[in-house]
């Protein structure tokens, strides 16, 4: 049974995500703050979907619901036809801050997921492989405070990838990096996604980043977030930032966000 599941996972690396009529709100000092308004979205297995919207619109809230960290007020979220009831290592999140555990070395940080699932002893090689994937094998014994911002975020990525996730949930993971590191890591992300085939959900407020990385860009409205547009980016990888088709899409998206005057 377990073996069969392993085989099935190997055949179809990515999972489908089905979000249907999701509403969510927070209680702030007794007042209800609505953050998601009837959001419905189907993500196909292996797709790279970017969620784009103004800051504070509820993008990250949607990701927390997909990760299973919070439960929606109403509506359903499903991963491969199974309802999402809580966090699961098949849907791993990379947050804006690397949030590495400062008391663990790089290796031990990456090993966290396997250790939590109780399979580390038999699968130590997976940790080495994940570190190799992000090019940090030489830093495996370093502590987080010795790393640069880009390296720390790479470790966070390795910590996610070591679990062989079906869905990789990225919450502005490159938001705090300098622009050069950022461009380099965008290319790495695309390469990893193409190699591994997991479904990727990326929250960002950077239009260019969304267009360079994603198959589909979902544009969200101001709070409470509704889906304003669902744009297919049908360009081959690696993409060029100067591609005129992307520039057209960019103008269109900025218009949707009410920023056409700045273009």
């Amino acid at each position: 049974m377990v073996a069969a599941a392993e085989v099935a996972r190997a055949q179809v690396p990515g999972a489908a995500i089905d979000i249907a009529h999701v509403d969510h709100a927070f209680d702030i000092d007794g007042a209800e703050l609505k953050v998601l308004d009837d959001v419905s979205l189907i993500v196909e297995p292996g797709e790279f979907v970017a969620l784009l919207g103004p800051s504070g619109c509820g993008k990250s809230t949607l990701l927390r619901l997909i990760a299973g960290l919070d439960k929606p007020r109403s509506g359903t979220l499903r991963e491969d036809e199974v309802g999402i009831r809580g966090p699961h290592p098949s849907r791993v999140v990379v947050f804006q801050d690397p949030t590495l555990f400062p008391w663990r070395t790089v290796w031990d940080n990456v090993a966290l997921g396997l250790e939590a699932q109780g399979i580390l002893k038999k699968q130590r090689h997976r940790v080495d492989a994940a570190l190799d994937l992000v090019g940090l094998t030489d830093f495996k014994n370093a502590y987080p405070h010795q790393l640069s911002g880009g390296m720390a975020q790479r470790v966070a990525l390795a910590r996610a990838l070591v679990n062989d996730p079906k869905v990789l949930v990225l919450d502005e993971p490159l938001g705090k990096l300098d622009s050069l590191t950022r461009i380099a890591m965008q290319a790495e992300l695309v390469a990893l996604w193409q190699r591994k085939g997991f479904t990727t959900l990326l929250v960002t407020h950077d239009v260019e980043e969304a267009l360079v990385l994603a198959n589909r860009v979902i544009v969200l409205s101001d709070r409470p977030a509704r889906i304003k547009a669902d744009i297919v980016v049908d360009r081959p990888y690696p993409r060029h930032r100067g591609d005129p088709h992307l520039a057209d899409l960019r103008r269109q998206i900025l218009g949707l966000l009410g920023l056409e005057a700045t273009w």
Binding site: P89, F101, E115
Partner: peptide, 22 residues
Amino acid sequence: PTAYYDVARTLGARPWFLVLKV
């Protein structure tokens, strides 16, 4: 920080792991 617990939970940590290892 609650972010530590969020990270551990998405990686499959159970409550005892959260207490002892986080």
